[in-house]
Simulated assay, not measured.
Amino acid sequence: MWRTPWILAVICALAILLTPAAAIAAPPSPGPAEEGSAELTQRLDAANRAYIDAQNALGASRQRQAAYAAQQADLESRYNAMLADTQKISITAYQMGGGLRDAAALLDSPTPGVFADRVSLLELIARRQGERLRELSGVRDRLDAARAAVDAEVAKQQEQLAVMAKQKAEVEAALATARMREAQRLLDAATTTSAGTPNVVAEPAPRHPDGSWPAETCGAPDPTTKGCLTPRALHALQQVRRAGFGRFVSCWRPPGEPYEHPKGRACDFAADPKGFGGVADGTSKEYGTQLATWLVRNAERLGVMYVIWFRQIWTPAAGWHTYESGKGDPSSDHTNHVHMSIY
């Protein structure tokens, strides 16, 4: 008996995958951000497994689809060949039994009985060929039905696979958003909520009457090196020291290095009292956190373009977010100093 199995139940597990994620709250840690991220990770794992199962099911259905097509082509060829043979036999039997039953035909046979036997044999063969043709026709019809069923199955699975791919992408996007919020929450706890940050308000740097920053060149002596600073960068450095941050700092660097240091528009503030060293911790990390927080709070007054501290970067447009240019060492990751760049 011909039956066509259906493989469509694999998507049922995704019915609950896109329920709204729990709101991500602020500290204390660990908070709902981590819990939401873990839940979304589990949901994404389930979505991936269901998606792979559906892909495998679709692949199996396509193999069956190809097998049916091959069987159908072979059967059609056999059917057409047998039909042609049967037609020839039937025509010959008819001619011998009717239109050719004349003296010439009788002369070709030893006796009338032999002639009649030949006609009967041809008719028997024709009947058996006809029966075989009817059997092949039935097989062909069942094969057509099976192929149509698997074609419909493949079409349905393709639709469901597209739905699951969309759902999987939505879970991935939700997980990425949760992780960004989690990183922001942790960063807020580490930088922007430091209770020890000085309340000293920076004196604003000079602006044009329309509020824009004047263009400046590296012309003022840099007190931290033998190089130079722009007047606005020197003003920011002086305001940092005025706020009470007096640990080691280095600003200008020789031409050839990237970014703002060679332009006299950037400074690196060591977190540890001994200068640049390993990853800051304890009071050294708190010092860096307070300095980064103070720079952000006074960014508009000083013309701060961005601040980098502890694998995070702050910009006026995006706030704090992950710093992705580090190479795993304290200097490039900015875990031993706070970087300040000025417009």
Rank of each mutant, 00 (worst) to 15 (best):
A155L: 12
G138D: 06
A152T: 14
V139N: 13
R179S: 05
V279I: 14
L187F: 02
I11F: 05
L17T: 09
Q63M: 07
R185F: 08
A236K: 14
L291M: 03
R43C: 01
L106W: 13
G36W: 00
A270F: 01
I24C: 15
T41Y: 09
Q71Y: 01
H208L: 15
D85H: 10
G256R: 15
D329P: 02
A103F: 08
L186Q: 12
A25D: 12
D151V: 02
G319P: 09
T111P: 03
Q167L: 12
M96I: 05
M1V: 07
N56M: 10
K285F: 08
K226E: 06
C251Q: 11
A299V: 07
A23Y: 05
V154C: 12
A292Y: 01
S37W: 05
F248H: 13
V201W: 02
P20K: 12
G326E: 09
D272N: 13
W2I: 07
K156Y: 05
K168F: 01
T191D: 02
E131F: 07
C12Y: 13
T111I: 04
R3S: 15
P5W: 11
P273Y: 12
A81G: 03
I7S: 15
A116W: 02
S29W: 11
T177F: 06
V249L: 04
P330R: 00
A50H: 05
I89A: 11
P231V: 10
Y343V: 13
G303A: 12
A152M: 11
A9K: 15
D268K: 06
A126M: 05
